[in-house]
């Protein structure tokens, strides 16, 4: 099951959840081992608040909205959930010496902060750096395979 940019999907073992080409974006896998249910989100930006004046806001695009919304939906499917999370992405792809902190780093902070508020522990992460990453989550084992161009595959 493929998750596009600014989207999330929830599924169940034995399916895979895949999101490709994460640069400064972040892929967050949240899962409950007992039920075999997992959700994968691909956020673009840390915070929706600067965009609140817009008529439509896509919650799946922002760390602060996407993760609580996905978790709410998952809670409706699981009786006593014990959520864990694995996160991938948040690269600084280009070394531009912009004054402001890069989007990747801000995304990492926002995802970590939001998961903390949701009281979901981060079991493993592969974040930062300057390379794009593709993330494949196996809902049978909850292992996450991270592909990086011209580098060895990383397993989380």
């Amino acid at each position: 099951m493929r998750i596009g940019i600014a989207d999330y999907k929830i599924s169940q073992a034995p399916n895979n959840l895949i999101t490709v080409g994460l640069g400064s974006c972040i892929g967050t896998l949240i899962y409950d081992e007992r039920s075999g249910i997992g959700g994968l989100s691909h956020i673009m930006l840390p915070d929706s608040r600067p965009f609140e004046k817009r008529s439509t806001v896509n919650a799946a695009k922002f760390a602060n909205l996407a993760l609580p919304k996905m978790v709410d939906e998952m809670k409706r499917q699981i009786r006593f959930p014990h959520f864990k999370a694995k996160i991938v992405g948040g690269a600084n792809m280009f070394n531009f010496d912009n004054n402001t902190q890069n989007v990747g780093a801000r995304n990492i902070m926002a995802v970590e902060e939001t998961l903390k508020q949701l009281r979901i522990p981060i079991i493993a992460k592969h974040v930062g750096g300057s390379n794009g990453q593709t993330m494949v989550a196996d809902l049978e084992t909850f292992q996450v395979m991270v592909r990086i161009v011209h580098q060895e595959t990383v397993y989380l």
Partner: peptide, 22 residues
């Protein structure tokens, strides 16, 4: 020069210049 996934390159380039729309 970077060797990477097209999706990672292009989306990060737009985001780096504050183009936040989908």
């Amino acid at each position: 020069i970077k060797n990477d996934f097209f999706g990672a390159l292009i989306s990060s380039a737009y985001l780096a210049f504050d183009q936040y729309d989908e």
